[in-house]
Simulated scan of single mutants.
Amino acid sequence: MSELRFDDVSVRYGNRRHGLTAVDGVSLTVPSGAVVGLVGESGSGKSTLARTAVGLSPVTSGRVLLDGTDIGRLPRGRRPIQMVFQDPYSSLDPRMTIGDSIAEAFPRGAHRGRSARRGEVGRLLELVNLDPDRAEVLPRQLSGGQRQRVALARALAGQPDVVIADEITSALDVSVQGAVLNLVRDVQRQLGLSMLFISHNLAVVRYLSDFVAVMYLGRIVEAGPTDRVLADPQHPYTRDLLGAAPARHEPVAAVGPESVADVEPPDPHDPPHGCRYHPRCPVGPLVVAGRDVCTTDDPSVGADQRPHDAACHFPLGKSPVPPITDLSGRPTPVG
Rank of each mutant, 00 (worst) to 15 (best):
R5K: 14
R5G: 01
D8I: 00
V9E: 12
G14I: 06
L20F: 13
T21K: 13
D24P: 10
S27P: 09
S27N: 09
L28S: 10
V30I: 15
P31M: 02
S32T: 09
A34F: 02
L38A: 10
G40V: 02
G43T: 08
S47L: 05
R51D: 05
T52Y: 12
V54I: 15
V54C: 12
L56H: 09
L56V: 06
G62H: 05
G62W: 08
G68E: 09
T69K: 13
D70E: 12
R73F: 00
G77L: 08
R78L: 12
R78W: 01
P80F: 10
I81W: 10
M83D: 07
V84P: 10
Y89I: 01
R95V: 12
M96Y: 13
F106H: 03
R108M: 12
R114V: 05
R118Y: 00
G119I: 00
G119A: 15
V121W: 04
V121G: 05
L124G: 09
L127Y: 02
V128D: 13
D131Y: 01
D133G: 09
E136G: 14
V137L: 03
L138P: 01
P139I: 06
Q141N: 08
L142Q: 07
S143K: 03
G144Q: 11
R147T: 09
Q148C: 07
Q148T: 08
R149A: 11
A151P: 06
R154P: 11
A155V: 11
Q159E: 15
D166S: 08
A171V: 04
L172I: 08
V174K: 05
V176L: 10
Q177F: 08
V180C: 06
V184C: 09
R185K: 15
L191E: 13
L193D: 12
S194D: 07
S194P: 09
M195Y: 06
L196Q: 12
F197R: 11
F197L: 14
N201V: 01
V204Y: 11
V205A: 14
Y207K: 12
S209Y: 08
R219P: 04
E222Y: 07
A223D: 01
D227P: 00
R228H: 12
R228F: 00
L230M: 13
L230Y: 10
A231G: 14
A231K: 07
P233G: 05
H235T: 02
T238W: 02
D240W: 01
D240I: 04
A244K: 06
A244W: 09
P251T: 04
P251Q: 11
P251N: 10
A253P: 00
A253T: 13
A254S: 14
P257N: 06
D262R: 14
D267N: 15
D267C: 08
D267F: 06
P268G: 11
D270I: 00
P272Q: 05
H273G: 13
G274R: 01
G274S: 02
R276C: 04
R280I: 02
V283G: 02
V287K: 06
R291Q: 03
D292G: 15
D292V: 01
D298T: 01
D298N: 13
P299H: 06
P299I: 02
S300A: 14
G302K: 04
H313G: 07
F314L: 04
F314Y: 15
L316I: 11
L316F: 08
S319F: 03
T325M: 15
D326L: 03
L327C: 02
R330M: 10
R330Q: 14
P331C: 08
T332I: 00
T332D: 14
T332A: 15
